[in-house]
């Protein structure tokens, strides 16, 4: 066990294998781990961009007790033995995080009342915790020309925070990517350049990885506020994907199909467009039962009271006394 690295985050210690990032260690520790808007563990190369996961490294390692010179992105910074990290306990970190959330919001349209993502939006959650009550931003907000990217996915560029997750998803899941990040700076946008629809058979996954309402399910548009629909775990035999999904029901009708997200809000088993968009009859699916919802979720608040299974921890990780 000697090659495990001990890291202390907000006073709690854990030992992790080399290569583990601060974010991964913090998630294993449980409690309040840093938020992530761009990092997405199942997608390679994500992370480092949004900066909401910044933490303070008060001691780099046992061998090098100096702090790192500035705040680091916990999602891409690897743990060293004896590292001491401050997350929620550092006023500097919280101030930086508030600042980043403010930056993410200055050009955001704040159109949550008409946004299908509302209720399951990472930016909304982040704003509750780190946002100001009033904006200090008095300038004009960014606008984009609307583009149509096909029958399945609705793009609202004004809501996009440029996390690049959908770009990595398209690269890694679909092979032939037709959308990307165009232009530069604060006029960068997700687009296809020429009018083109995104139709690869795994393209629907860009909806699930989007942390905000920039990419939403066109077949579900304005059908229902998410907290009024009932999620059920279900599966079917599919020759393209795992076939394991969440069905979002209104009465007996399936109004939306998504992949299953883990306790970190990440999909590990991506699903095909066929399952997502083309199977909306209850008879298409074997329904396993109501889906567990985390208590913090808007949809969990008063709809479901199933006991929450504690998040699975990495069994390789050995907890050390606090």
């Amino acid at each position: 066990m000697s090659d495990l690295l001990k890291v202390t985050i907000d006073g709690k210690s854990i030992e992790v294998p080399p290569g583990t990032t601060i974010m991964q260690a913090a998630r294993q520790l449980g409690g309040k781990y840093p938020p992530a808007m761009c990092y997405y563990e199942p997608l390679k190369n994500t992370g480092g961009k949004c900066r909401v996961c910044l933490v303070k490294v008060a001691q780099t390692s046992e061998a090098n007790p100096r702090p790192m010179p500035k705040l680091v992105a916990s999602c891409i910074t690897r743990v060293e033995h004896g590292m001491v990290v401050e997350n929620e306990t550092s006023p500097e970190v919280l101030d930086a995080r508030n600042g980043v959330v403010e930056f993410l919001l200055i050009n955001h349209p704040l159109d949550c009342p008409v946004c299908d993502q509302a209720g399951e939006c990472d930016l909304q959650n982040l704003s509750y915790e780190h946002g100001h009550e009033q904006t200090r931003y008095e300038e004009g907000r960014r606008e984009f020309e609307r583009i149509d990217i096909g029958p399945y996915v609705q793009l609202h560029m004004t809501r996009c925070i440029l996390c690049y997750r959908c770009v990595y998803a398209a690269d890694q899941l679909t092979g032939q990517r037709v959308h990307g990040v165009l232009n530069r700076g604060d006029v960068s946008e997700i687009g296809t350049y020429i009018q083109q629809s995104i139709e690869n058979e795994f393209s629907g996954n860009i909806i699930d990885v989007c942390p905000v309402g920039a990419l939403t399910d066109k077949t579900y548009r304005f059908k229902q506020r998410v907290w009024f629909s009932k999620p059920f775990d279900a599966h079917r035999d599919c020759d393209k994907c795992c076939g394991k999904v969440v069905l979002w029901m209104k009465g007996d009708a399936i109004i939306r199909v998504t992949a299953r997200k883990n306790e970190f809000g990440e999909v590990t088993d991506f699903i095909c467009n066929d399952c997502r968009f083309e199977h909306k009859q209850a008879s298409d699916w074997s329904i396993e039962g109501p889906r567990d919802i985390i208590p913090e979720s808007v949809i969990g608040a008063n709809k479901y009271e199933l006991p929450v299974v504690s998040p699975a921890v990495n069994v390789d990780a050995k907890f050390v006394s606090e």
Partner: peptide
């Protein structure tokens, strides 16, 4: 032009979007 960029993509064996991303940057 888009046609020219597509032809460059074909020559370099890239997805056209990779050329658009760069040209617009």
């Amino acid at each position: 032009s888009t046609e020219a960029m597509n032809a460059v993509a074909e020559y370099l064996n890239l997805n056209p979007i990779e050329v658009y991303e760069v040209a617009t940057f």
